[in-house]
Amino acid sequence: MDAIRWVQDLPFSTWIRESSWAVFTFLILHMWGLALLVGGSALVALRNFGFAKTIEPALFKRFTPVMWTGFVLALISGLLLLMAYPAKHLTNPVFAVKFAFLIAGALLTRRLLNGSGSLRLTAAAVLLAWAGVIACGDLLKYTNTVLLVY
């Protein structure tokens, strides 16, 4: 808890909370990250369900930079929001579940990109993982119990 207080009381964290534009700007970047990362990954999943099947699955690796861009955008904006409100998120089990889904989504997407043929089950698991990330991310707004700062 001391570490959490130290982070939230940093001048930069305080600035994020008090700035008139920082929080919504980071949330916009977070949603852009979602669009590029989940968008790219869901496209790969669709290919593995048998759509656009005239395209070799391995060719979808060309969208990897798009997914990385989305991931980095979401990660940086997410870390900035976490700095502003560390207690709110780090004390919420939903936040841990979100990360479990995130790791699953990333690893399973990599498996789709490196696999061959139609990996339907893996593709379904990828979509489920992103659904979990989005659901947990949204629920963070409603399920927090500890709020040390506003």
């Binding site: 949603m31 979602l34 669009a35 869901a42």
Partner: peptide, 10 residues
């Protein structure tokens, strides 16, 4: 939000 993801996928 999930639909945003699907919109960007296609």
């Amino acid at each position: 939000f999930m639909s945003v993801g699907v919109l960007f996928a296609s």
